[in-house]
Nucleic acid binder design. Structure first.
Length: 559
RNA sequence: AGGGCUGUAGCCAAGCGGUAAGGCAUCUGGUUUUGAUCCAGUGUACCGCAGGUUCGAAUCCUGCCAGCCCUGCCA
C-alpha cells in the first residue's frame, strides 16, 4: 500500500485526508478533488493559515483538482477590504493560484436567502424573538437540556412573512433571528436550534447596503461549499461538533442532499513555540504598538515572514514537514528554521558583511586595494564569481578577535596567531590598540602574499577562517537581528501574554557590507558568510538595511 | 453516566492484525578557505494505562487515565 509514508499520487507525505480522498476517488464518490481556502477577511494571514493553504491548494494540485479562494465574509462588522487585498497577495506570494474567479460567501446571499426560505417552508426554521440573554437561558447547559423557544411553533406562513420583514429591515438589530428547528436537548450545543440569520444594519465591503440580515457561519459555510461543488471541506479541530450542523443543513436542502455533496474533515491547527497564532492576539500586538505592524519581521504573519526573508518554498516545505493530523501539537521553532536554511543554503548567493566592526591594518601591504574574485556559492560554481576587495585597511567582526586565545579551540584571530581571511590571504595578529575605555580600536596584522587561493607553501596549517570587508570600499549598513518574540514556549497560556514578550527580540547593528551589495533587491536572500541568511528590508527604501532571516546552524557556541 | 476528539522517542509524524517509516533536535566520526554545507554513523519508543480476543495486537474488544474542544445574534 503506502510506500515509506509517501502518498501514491505524488511524492508527498501521506496523511489521513489523503487516505480519505484516495478512498472517495476509488469509490467514485467524486470525480475530481475540489477544495477551498476560506479565510474571513478580518486580519492578516499567518503561518497557521499557510499550513491550511498548503493543505488545500497543495492537495488539490496533487490530485489534479481545483482549489477556490473564498472569502468567508458573512460578518461585515469585522471585515475590511484591506484584509481581502492582503490575503490575495499572500496566497499568491506563497505560490498558489485559485481556480477561476475569487469567491465570496457574499456572492451567494441571494441563494442563502432562498435556502433559508426553503427550510422555513419545510417547517425547519423559525423567526425567534428571544433576546440574546433569554436565548442563552433557553439553551440550557452542557449537562442540562435546553427548552423550546416560545416562537418555535409559529406557522410556516407567519415565519415566511416575518423573515421577509427581517430582510426588509422592519426589525431592529437584536430584535429577532432566524433559527433552525433541530433539537433543544441535543448533546451538541450547536444543534440546539442554532441561529441561521441575524439582523445587522452594516455596510458590507462587497454587497454594500443591499442586506440588513446576514447569515451565520454554520449556515453560510456548508452551503457555500455545496454551491461551489467543494468535495472535501477541510477545517480545524474546533469545528468537529459543527460538522453535525454542516451535515444537517445540507441534508435538508433539496439541492444538496446527494451522495457527492461536500463533507467536512478536521485537522489540528498549527501551534509554534515562542509565538502566538490567534488573530485576536496578533491584532493586539499591532494595536498596542508592541511590534511595528502586521509585517514586523518578528510576527508569524506571512507578510512578516516575507519581510524577514522567508521564501515561499521554505514555508511550503515547512508545511510538508510538520504534516497533517488530528493531534493537538506544539511544533518546535527548529523545524521552521531548518526548512528555511535548507532552501536558502541552496539558493542564497554568498557575501561578506561585518556586523560589529573593528579596524584591521595589514602592516606589510602597500598601495591601492586590490580586487579579488570570490565564488558566489562554494558548492555551486554555475552561480559564478563576484568581485571583492582586499587592502591595507579592513574591517573584521569584534567577536573574531581576542588578544589572547581563550582556549585551544579558539579558531579566530589572536596576537601571534594565524588565521585565514575568507576568500583572501592568511594573516597573523601582531599588535593591538585600545581606546580609553579598553575597547579594541585597531588590530595590526601582517599577511602572507602567497596564500591567496592556496595554503601556505611551507605546509603551515591554518585552521581558522574569518570574514572581512575592505575598508575603503565598504558600504555602511544596518543589520537587524531578530530573536523569538516571547520568552516562554506557549505565550497563549499566560494570563497576560504581553508580559512575556522578549525585550531583546530585536537588536540593531551598524556595520559594513561588500560594495557589490549596494543594489541588492528587497527580499533577495544572501548568506553573509559565518553570520547567517539576510535580506534587504522591504520597507527601508534606499537605505542599506538588512534583516537577518535566520542565523547559520551553530553547533559549537553552546559547548 | 453531558457530548465531540486525541494519546507512537525531546518535538512533529507514518503505520490500520504479522512483529515500530521519515523529518526536526541530540550525539559521534569524516570532508571543508563559512566552527556552515555535505557525507557516514548514533535511539531498549513498556506504541497513555490495565485487562481480554488471537498462533500473533500499536493495530480488534472492554474498562480506566490524561489533554483539547463545545452553552456568540463570532468564524
Amino acid at each position: 500500500m503506502s510506500n515509506n509514508g509517501k502518498s501514491e499520487a505524488v511524492d508527498r507525505p501521506v496523511n489521513f485526508i489523503r487516505n480519505i480522498i484516495d478512498e472517495d476517488l476509488a469509490q467514485q464518490k467524486h470525480k475530481q478533488v475540489h477544495t477551498r481556502f476560506p479565510p474571513e477577511p478580518n486580519g492578516y494571514l499567518h503561518i497557521g493559515h499557510a499550513k491550511s493553504i498548503c493543505l488545500n491548494f497543495g492537495t488539490a494540485a496533487d490530485y489534479n483538482g481545483k482549489c477556490n479562494l473564498r472569502f468567508d465574509d458573512t460578518n461585515p462588522a469585522k471585515e475590511d477590504m484591506e484584509y481581502v487585498d492582503s490575503i490575495k497577495n499572500d496566497v499568491n506570494w506563497l505560490g498558489f493560484q485559485w481556480a477561476d474567479e475569487i469567491c465570496y460567501s457574499s456572492n451567494y446571499f441571494d441563494q442563502f436567502y432562498a435556502y433559508a426560505t426553503e427550510l422555513i417552508e419545510k417547517g425547519l426554521a423559525y423567526v425567534c424573538f428571544l433576546n440574546a440573554e433569554e436565548s442563552r437561558e433557553y439553551r440550557g447547559s452542557l449537562k442540562e437540556p435546553g427548552k423550546d423557544s416560545p416562537y418555535r411553533d409559529t406557522s410556516v406562513e407567519e415565519n415566511l412573512a416575518l423573515f421577509t420583514k427581517m430582510k426588509n429591515g422592519e426589525f431592529k438589530e437584536g430584535e429577532c433571528v432566524l433559527r433552525a428547528k433541530i433539537d433543544m436537548a441535543s448533546s451538541f450545543m450547536c444543534m440546539r436550534d442554532p441561529t441561521l440569520y441575524r439582523v445587522r444594519f452594516e455596510h458590507h465591503h462587497q454587497t454594500g447596503d443591499k442586506w440588513c440580515i446576514y447569515p451565520m457561519y454554520d449556515f453560510a459555510h456548508c452551503t457555500s461549499d455545496a454551491i461551489e461543488g467543494i468535495t472535501h471541506s477541510l477545517c480545524t479541530l474546533e469545528f468537529q461538533d459543527n460538522r453535525r450542523l454542516y451535515d444537517w443543513v445540507l441534508e435538508h436542502l433539496n439541492d444538496f442532499n446527494k451522495p457527492d455533496r461536500p463533507h467536512q474533515y478536521e485537522f489540528s491547527r498549527l501551534n509554534l513555540e515562542y509565538t502566538v497564532m490567534s488573530k485576536r492576539k496578533l491584532h493586539q500586538l499591532v494595536d498596542d504598538n508592541l511590534v511595528e505592524g502586521w509585517n514586523d519581521p518578528r510576527m508569524p504573519t506571512i507578510s512578516g515572514m516575507r519581510r524577514r526573508g522567508y521564501t515561499p518554498a521554505s514555508i511550503r516545505d515547512f508545511a510538508e514537514r510538520i504534516g497533517i493530523s488530528k493531534v493537538d501539537s506544539m511544533t518546535e521553532m527548529t523545524v521552521l528554521e531548518a526548512a528555511v536554511r535548507d532552501d536558502l543554503n541552496k539558493v542564497a548567493p554568498r557575501s561578506m558583511a561585518v556586523l560589529d566592526p573593528i579596524k584591521l591594518v595589514i602592516e606589510n601591504y602597500e598601495g591601492e586595494p586590490q580586487a579579488l574574485m570570490a565564488p558566489i556559492h562554494p558548492q555551486n560554481e554555475e552561480m559564478g564569481k563576484r568581485e571583492i576587495f582586499f587592502g591595507k585597511e579592513l574591517y573584521i567582526d569584534r567577536a573574531d578577535f581576542s588578544e589572547v586565545a581563550p582556549n585551544r579551540k579558539f579558531m579566530r584571530l589572536a596576537l601571534d596567531k594565524e588565521v585565514r581571511l575568507r576568500n583572501a590571504y592568511v594573516i597573523k595578529g601582531e599588535r593591538v590598540e585600545y581606546d580609553a575605555d579598553g575597547n579594541v580600536t585597531t588590530v595590526y596584522c601582517t599577511y602572507d602574499p602567497d596564500t591567496h587561493g592556496k595554503n601556505p607553501a611551507d605546509g603551515r596549517k591554518v585552521k581558522g577562517v574569518i570574514h572581512f570587508v575592505e575598508a575603503s570600499k565598504a558600504v555602511p549598513a544596518e543589520f537587524r537581528l531578530y530573536d523569538r518574540l516571547f520568552t516562554v514556549e506557549n505565550p497563549a497560556k499566560e494570563d497576560n501574554f504581553e508580559a512575556v514578550i522578549n525585550s531583546e527580540s530585536l537588536s540593531v547593528k551598524q556595520g559594513y557590507i561588500e560594495p557589490g551589495l549596494v543594489d541588492s533587491k528587497p527580499e533577495q536572500a544572501y548568506q553573509f558568510e559565518r553570520e547567517g541568511y539576510f535580506c534587504r528590508d522591504n520597507q527601508s527604501g534606499e537605505q542599506q538595511v538588512y534583516n537577518r532571516t535566520v542565523a547559520l546552524r551553530d553547533t559549537w557556541s553552546k559547548k
